[in-house]
Simulated scan of single mutants.
Amino acid sequence: MSTIPRVGRIMTFTAKPGRGAELASIMLQVAEGLRGSLGCELYLVSRDAEAPDTVRVVEAWTDFASADAALATTVATHADIDLNAVLGMLAEPPEQIDLDALGGVGL
């Protein structure tokens, strides 16, 4: 088990029917924008195999303040990431689950 405290987050985004691939593409752009961000240890974007309009992001950070700051900066500084467009393609509000990341493979 890791002794370095970390936090995790699982985000679930449900796109309007047929827009899951488009949503996943934008979330991958967010991931690219986070490369090298202070505190970001993992930002994994996946589509649900059984429900392709559902996109999940699994994150690991040194702390939630780093996560919130890095995500805000990435969205604000990358013109190709339009938060309003993302919100417009969602069928429902995103679900956020915050976690105490204890360790495991890759952490």
Rank of each mutant, 00 (worst) to 15 (best):
Q29P: 00
G104F: 08
G18T: 05
V105E: 09
Q29C: 06
E95F: 04
I26E: 07
A72D: 14
L38S: 13
S37M: 06
L28R: 14
T3D: 12
L107P: 00
D53N: 14
R35K: 15
G20T: 05
C40R: 09
Q96K: 09
I10R: 03
Q96M: 10
S66W: 00
V75K: 05
H78F: 11
L99N: 04
L99M: 15
G36C: 10
S46D: 08
E41V: 02
V58K: 02
T12R: 14
G106P: 02
M27H: 06
R35W: 01
V105F: 15
L102Y: 02
A85H: 15
P5M: 09
V30L: 10
M89Y: 08
D98F: 11
G36W: 04
M27E: 11
S2F: 01
K16N: 07
L23H: 00
L102R: 09
A70T: 10
A31S: 15
W61L: 02
A31C: 13
D48R: 04
L38W: 03
L102C: 08
Q96H: 11
A70L: 08
E95D: 12
T14C: 03
L44Y: 12
C40S: 10
G88D: 13
S37F: 02
K16G: 01
E50S: 12
V57E: 01
L107N: 04
S46M: 12
A49E: 11
D82A: 08
P5C: 06
R6W: 03
G39Y: 06
L83I: 12
L102P: 00
R9C: 14
R47T: 07
D98M: 13
I4M: 08
A65D: 14
R9I: 10
A15R: 01
A101L: 13
A15K: 01
L38Q: 15
L23N: 00
G103L: 06
A51T: 13
L107D: 06
A72R: 14
V7W: 02
M11T: 10
T12I: 12
